[in-house]
Simulated scan of single mutants.
Amino acid sequence: MPYQKNKDFHKLLEKVDSCLENDYPFSIYRKPLESKVFGVFQSNDELNITTDFEDKGFVFAPFDLNDNAVLIHADEVLEVFFEKEGTTDDIKTFTNDSGKYNHLKLVEKGINKIGSGALTKVVLSRKIAVKLSRSPKEIFISLLSNYPNAFCYLFFHPKVGIWCGATPETLVRIAGGELETMSLAATLPIKENSSPNWGSKEIEEQKMVSDYIKEKLVHSLEEFNMGKAESIVAGDLWHLKSDIKGKLSATAQIKDIITSLHPTPAVCGIPTSAAKAFIVQNESYKRTYYTGFLGELNLNKEREMNLFVNLRCMEISDQNASIFVGGGITSASNPEREWSETQNKSKTMLNII
């Protein structure tokens, strides 16, 4: 019998079952540190795209915007409360060692490219194929219960597929003419009773991202304020984060802001075009929606959005899942340590399934 306080939430999941059965697109999600779960539902199976980001609904955008950002029309929007049922899952430490040799070689190639002067930073990733033992709904509930400070979501479109995740990174939030974003970079595993010991590589990587965002946004803002870099927890990992706030100028265009921020140096590299080209040419798979972005687009008012970078995510097909992990490569990178970083990141999804 469903937990009584989550009665409406389980009704929402029944609607999700109906949509999956009838091939109707939807996204259900919870924002960080909130108790409400939202559902955006489309009443047909059409594949809608948004290019100017003036549309209303839930956007699901790829790493490469040339591949088009999918929009779920908000034909119905539901809002319910979710309360964790019972205790948090007993998460086991689980990793997958497949693909290590190839990833080490990829990182070495990236370091050599940086050494040649063509790049300052490049984010390199890999895909992990695993068998599922849980349904998408069960995975979503587990994400909600275990990662309260992440944006947790379950997305479906019959022409795109099923994706879910628990991402720690905001791309941009705009409301009332005010903009908020973050500079998030660097990763260390959490050790019991110990604070993170950031090295020069991690500190420099986070500074690169901060400087890049400031350069990209300063022309669209009347005011620009960046907070100090602070250590934050996301799942079982430490990251360095700086909060960024500003006031939009009267001439600022939403599309320009999104395209200037995406892809961020935290998921692509510096300079963006050269890093993106290196990624496309050298990663052994196509990222599609991994390291893209997703979230509310003009759902309540025009020129309002709440978008997140699609990290710590998986693509689900039948009883299989593809999990995606990566890390920022700089001149100070060490291939073995970069492999370990992707292993640590992979636990967010691997330990849930």
Rank of each mutant, 00 (worst) to 15 (best):
S125H: 13
L237I: 10
D243A: 14
S260R: 13
H73I: 08
K286L: 10
V218S: 13
C164Q: 02
S116Q: 15
A229N: 15
A74E: 04
G110E: 01
L237M: 07
R337Y: 07
G165M: 14
S135W: 04
S116W: 13
V70D: 12
E108T: 03
F41Q: 01
Y3H: 04
I49C: 07
F151D: 05
K286D: 00
S331Y: 05
T87C: 07
E204C: 06
H219D: 07
V233G: 14
D89F: 10
G292Q: 07
E178T: 11
D90L: 15
F9T: 05
D75T: 09
Y153L: 13
F156A: 12
K31F: 13
R287Y: 02
D211T: 10
F60I: 13
S98V: 03
L124T: 01
F151P: 14
Q281M: 06
K216I: 06
E46R: 12
L13C: 02
K137C: 00
R312P: 11
N22D: 02
W198K: 02
F81N: 03
M1Q: 04
S333N: 05
E108K: 15
L307R: 10
D17K: 08
P271G: 09
E302M: 10
D243N: 07
T95V: 10
S35P: 05
I257H: 01
K56S: 08
N320C: 11
F308M: 10
L217T: 06
T251G: 03
H103I: 03
L65E: 10
N197T: 03
T259G: 04
T187M: 09
Q42L: 01
G328C: 07
N320A: 15
K36T: 05
V40S: 02
I323F: 11
G86H: 04
E108W: 00
T120R: 11
S98P: 07
P189L: 04
Q343A: 12
A69M: 13
I257N: 06
